[in-house]
Amino acid sequence: MSIIGEIKILFLKDLKIEYRNKLEIGILSIFSIATGAIIGFVSRNMLINQMKLVIGMIILTQLFLSVFASWKSFIKELEKGTLYSLLLTPISPASLFFSKLLLSVLLIETMSIISLFFSVFFSGGLIKPSIYIVVGILAMGLYLSAVSSFSSVVGVYVESRGLLVPLVILVLSLPATLYFVSSIENMTGLIILVLLSFAYGLVITSLVEMVMVEAD
């Protein structure tokens, strides 16, 4: 079977499971709406239009989401034991990784858009994101999805994953966030972020390969 076929089967399974976990999705949606509302209301009291601060706050929301996405990725499969049944099938490590990455991208990007939409709505027109900012936030979501999947794979190896995973996400996202926020206007940040996401993709795929030979 082709890698695309494997990714499709794995991704559809994850999507079906997420769809049935309506409570989790509902709570995440409320979280994104609430953070959007807070960002919107806070921006009303700004003396000047501090767009970079707004971006920073949305990235903070994405950070929380990436910790959650990390738990839902490989760690959840490990804790339920189903990682072993996946590793026993003749699928490629790349398929396993990309299906999990796709789910993280879908989750983080959807919730980021909800958060951005409600921050614009509750700001009373004070937040006016340009197309560069919207694309930039989506690129940051892509980057954090890669970081989230990476930390999830790392979490498979360690007992204290509850502490380590948020720490790994925070440490890996800080430099990118600072660079992204400071260079948002000239698109350099976006290009770097997308390149970094692909680099993480390669690292994680090789890590999944390691998990497949020593998953205990």
Binding site: K13, K16, I17, K80, G81, S85
Partner: peptide, 9 residues
């Protein structure tokens, strides 16, 4: 010795 299947399916 414990089932490796998905409860949600």
């Amino acid at each position: 010795h414990y089932p490796l299947i998905y409860d949600e399916l």
